[in-house]
Deep mutational scan, measured.
Amino acid sequence: KYLVLALYDYQEKSPREVTMKKGDILTLLNSTNKDWWKVEVNGRQGFVPAAYVKYL
């Protein structure tokens, strides 16, 4: 498993997404889509914009 760092705040806009705050450390679950990565944060799984996170 990889960890990624939230570069920006992101507010979920659909039930498939998750909210994150700048500085959050997220567990990367799937990065096959170049635009949306599946992550786990605070016990929830969902998608965030790939451009908003970077590998640690």
Rank of each mutant, 00 (worst) to 15 (best):
K1I: 14
V18A: 05
Y8R: 13
Y52V: 06
M20G: 00
K1N: 13
G46A: 04
F47I: 07
G46D: 01
R44T: 07
G46M: 04
V18T: 06
V41F: 15
L5R: 09
K22V: 08
A50H: 04
V4R: 02
V48L: 03
A6Y: 03
V48N: 00
K38P: 01
E12V: 06
Y55H: 12
Q45V: 14
K54A: 15
A50W: 02
L5A: 07
V39N: 01
E12K: 14
E40T: 07
K54Y: 10
D9K: 02
L5Y: 12
K34L: 10
L29W: 06
K38M: 15
T19S: 15
P49V: 03
V41G: 08
S31W: 15
Y55L: 15
N42H: 12
A50E: 03
N33S: 11
L28G: 01
G43H: 07
P15Q: 10
P49G: 02
G46T: 02
K1P: 15
A6Q: 01
L28H: 02
K34A: 13
G43I: 02
E40L: 09
R16E: 14
G43F: 05
L7Q: 05
L26Y: 10
S14T: 14
R16Y: 15
G43A: 06
R44S: 07
V41I: 15
L7P: 00
L7C: 08
K22C: 07
F47N: 04
V48K: 00
L28S: 02
D9R: 02
A50T: 06
W36N: 02
K21S: 09
W37E: 01
W36F: 07
L28T: 02
L26T: 01
G43Y: 05
N42M: 09
D24Y: 05
E40Q: 09
G23T: 02
M20R: 00
T19D: 04
N33F: 07
V53E: 00
K1F: 13
M20I: 15
R16I: 13
L28C: 08
L28M: 05
T32Q: 13
Q45C: 10
K54C: 15
M20T: 03
D9L: 02
V4E: 00
M20S: 01
L56V: 13
V4F: 08
G23Y: 05
L56S: 07
V53W: 01
E17I: 04
N30L: 09
V41R: 13
P49N: 02
T27P: 13
G23V: 01
V18Y: 03
V48I: 10
K21W: 09
P15N: 11
E40K: 07
E40A: 09
L28A: 03
K1M: 14
S31G: 11
K13E: 09
Y10P: 01
P15L: 10
V4T: 04
L7D: 02
Y8E: 12
A50N: 03
G23P: 00
A51G: 12
S31Y: 09
K21N: 10
E12Y: 05
F47W: 15
Y52F: 13
Q11L: 13
G46L: 04
N42E: 11
T27L: 14
S14H: 12
T27W: 12
S14P: 04
L7T: 06
M20N: 00
T27C: 11
T19I: 03
L5S: 06
Y52T: 07
N33I: 06
T19R: 05
L29C: 07
Q11T: 15
K22T: 08
E12F: 06
K22F: 05
I25P: 02
W36K: 02
V18S: 02
W37A: 05
E12L: 08
V48E: 00
V39C: 05
D24K: 03
D24H: 05
R16F: 14
M20W: 02
Y52P: 00
K13I: 08
Y2C: 15
K21I: 09
E12I: 06
K34M: 10
K13D: 06
F47L: 08
K54S: 12
P15W: 09
E17G: 13
K21P: 00
L7K: 07
T32D: 14
V53N: 00
L29P: 00
Y2W: 14
L56I: 13
K22H: 06
K34T: 11
Y10G: 01
K1R: 14
L26W: 02
V18L: 15
R44H: 08
Y55W: 12
N33G: 11
W36V: 03
F47C: 11
G43T: 05
R44E: 06
F47M: 09
N42F: 08
R16M: 14
L5V: 15
S31K: 12
F47D: 04
Y2E: 12
I25R: 06
A51R: 14
A51T: 12
T32H: 13
W37P: 03
K1W: 11
L26F: 06
D24V: 04
V4L: 15
D9P: 05
V4W: 08
Q11I: 14
V18C: 08
N33H: 12
D9S: 09
N33M: 09
P49Y: 02
L29N: 02
Y10W: 11
Y2L: 14
A6C: 10
W36I: 03
K21H: 11
G23H: 05
Q45Y: 08
L56R: 05
Y8N: 10
L56M: 12
N33T: 07
L3A: 07
V48W: 01
E17Y: 06
Y52H: 07
Y55R: 14
V53M: 06
G23W: 06
E17C: 07
A51S: 14
Q45L: 08
Q11M: 13
L29M: 08
E12R: 13
S14V: 05
L7F: 04
D35T: 14
S31H: 10
Y10H: 05
Y55C: 15
G46E: 01
W37K: 02
Q11S: 12
E40D: 11
D35H: 15
T32P: 04
Y55A: 13
N30A: 10
G46S: 02
L7R: 06
L28N: 00
T19F: 04
V39G: 00
Y55S: 12
P15Y: 09
